[in-house]
């Protein structure tokens, strides 16, 4: 399930729903990304997340499909917020369920790594009295590339 929304979400409820969907579920692994109050040494007062309506959902769907092809998964939930967000608010949720833990651990990390480099979202931070576009990190590109060589050790 893919959701791109301005509204918040309840990570606990999403995790419970992943388990409740099937009694074959033996593992649920989740990741929640939050807005920090600092970045690159600056105090961040808030941020705005821009996206490409249509393509964003399509790109997230492709990432989820690829995760399902690589691992034996029972469920996958991917929620990403857009619009204005304040420090402490959740931005992104990835939840994966499987029979055994390793598939869920790996698939969750894979979805986040690919999302960072392949899904059209752009963060604009509010720092003091100005706003600035967040620069991409090389470490995010490298994290995504490790999956191209197969499943990391």
């Amino acid at each position: 399930m893919i959701r791109v929304q301005t509204a918040g979400f309840d990570p606990g409820a999403e995790i419970n729903a992943l388990q409740a969907s099937s009694m074959s579920v033996g593992a649920v692994v989740s990741f929640v990304g939050y807005v920090r109050d600092f970045n690159a040494g600056n105090e961040v007062d808030g941020m705005f997340l821009e996206h490409y309506p249509g393509m964003t959902e399509k790109a997230l769907g492709k990432i989820a499909d690829e995760a399902r092809q690589r691992w034996s998964l029972l469920g996958l939930v991917l929620i990403h917020r857009v619009g204005a967000l304040l420090p402490g608010e959740p931005i992104v949720f990835v939840g994966v369920s499987s029979a055994h833990r390793q598939a869920a651990f790996d698939a969750c990390a894979f979805v986040m790594d690919y999302l960072k480099t392949r899904a059209p979202f752009w963060k604009k931070e509010q720092v003091a009295d100005r706003s600035q576009w967040v620069e991409a990190r090389d470490s995010d590109r490298e994290a995504a590339q490790r999956w191209d060589r197969g499943i990391p050790d």
Binding site: G33, Y52, K58, P120, W122, K123
Partner: peptide, 29 residues
Amino acid sequence: CARNQDMCGLDEPLSDGDEVAFFPTVTGG
């Protein structure tokens, strides 16, 4: 860049009616 809402390289060919997008490196998550 993206062609018809799929990420692509700059060597990607173009066809009549395509939806084309240009954007800076993505920073979601």
